[in-house]
Simulated scan of single mutants.
Amino acid sequence: MPKILIVDDAKFMRVKLSNILKGANYEVVAEAENGREAVQLYHKYKPDLVTMDITMPEMNGITALREIIGEDPNAKIIMCSAMGQQKMIVESIEFGAKDFILKPFDDNRILEAIKRVLD
C-alpha cells in the first residue's frame, strides 16, 4: 500500500484529500501544515508520494519541494494549487514536481495523477 504525505495549510483540505486517498486504499502516513513541517515529515516517513500545496505560511510549497528534491532526487511530489498560479506551477515542475492538481479538488483527477506518478 503506497504511503502518502499530505501537505496543506488548510485543515479541511487535508481532511478532504485524506478521505479521497484512504477511500482508494492509499495509506496517509502524515499531514503537514507548512513546508518546514513537510520537509521534517518527509525525512521521518520517507513516503512514496507527497501532495504539496503551493501557498503556505513559514515555508511555501516550492521551497519545500526544492529542499526535498535536493536531498532525494527520486521524491515523487504532486503540487496542489488554486487557479491563477500558473507561473508557480511551471516553476514547481521545473524544480522536479511530477504533476499538479488544481483546487477545488476533483476526486478522479487526484487519483489519476497519483496513480500515474506512482506507476
Results as ranks from 00 to 15, higher is better:
43 H>S: 13
58 E>L: 10
98 K>Y: 08
42 Y>S: 04
116 R>N: 09
88 M>A: 11
71 E>Q: 13
116 R>C: 03
75 A>Y: 02
119 D>V: 09
105 F>L: 12
42 Y>R: 00
29 V>D: 00
55 T>L: 08
100 F>D: 04
67 E>N: 11
5 L>S: 09
92 S>E: 01
46 K>R: 10
111 L>Q: 06
64 A>P: 04
86 Q>G: 03
74 N>R: 11
7 V>E: 09
109 R>Y: 04
101 I>H: 12
108 N>C: 04
28 V>R: 11
52 M>H: 09
48 D>A: 01
59 M>N: 11
61 G>Q: 05
55 T>M: 14
13 M>Q: 11
83 M>S: 15
109 R>P: 02
11 K>H: 06
35 G>C: 09
44 K>V: 11
50 V>H: 05
36 R>T: 07
94 E>P: 03
82 A>I: 12
13 M>E: 07
50 V>K: 01
13 M>L: 12
39 V>H: 08
10 A>N: 15
56 M>W: 14
46 K>T: 08
30 A>W: 04
69 I>E: 06
24 A>H: 14
80 C>T: 10
102 L>P: 02
73 P>C: 07
116 R>H: 06
12 F>I: 11
54 I>G: 05
2 P>E: 12
115 K>Y: 12
88 M>Y: 14
68 I>P: 05
107 D>R: 13
85 Q>H: 08
60 N>G: 05
10 A>W: 09
25 N>P: 03
111 L>K: 00
4 I>T: 07
42 Y>G: 00
38 A>R: 00
1 M>E: 07
10 A>K: 04
27 E>M: 13
5 L>P: 06
3 K>V: 02
108 N>K: 12
76 K>G: 01
102 L>H: 03
27 E>A: 13
107 D>N: 15
75 A>W: 01
84 G>Y: 13
13 M>F: 14
51 T>M: 05
35 G>Q: 12
87 K>M: 05
117 V>S: 06
69 I>A: 02
11 K>Y: 15
56 M>Q: 12
78 I>N: 08
108 N>S: 11
76 K>E: 03
42 Y>H: 14
37 E>H: 12
23 G>M: 00
78 I>G: 03
83 M>F: 15
97 A>E: 08
63 T>H: 05
84 G>N: 14
21 L>N: 06
50 V>Y: 04
106 D>E: 11
31 E>I: 09
112 E>C: 00
76 K>A: 02
20 I>C: 09
107 D>T: 13
66 R>D: 07
100 F>L: 07
69 I>F: 04
101 I>W: 08
4 I>Q: 03
80 C>H: 06
68 I>W: 02
34 N>Y: 13
55 T>N: 08
37 E>G: 10
77 I>G: 05
23 G>I: 02
19 N>Q: 14
86 Q>M: 09
16 K>V: 11
38 A>K: 00
106 D>I: 14
65 L>M: 08
15 V>F: 13
28 V>L: 13
113 A>M: 11
7 V>H: 08
8 D>V: 01
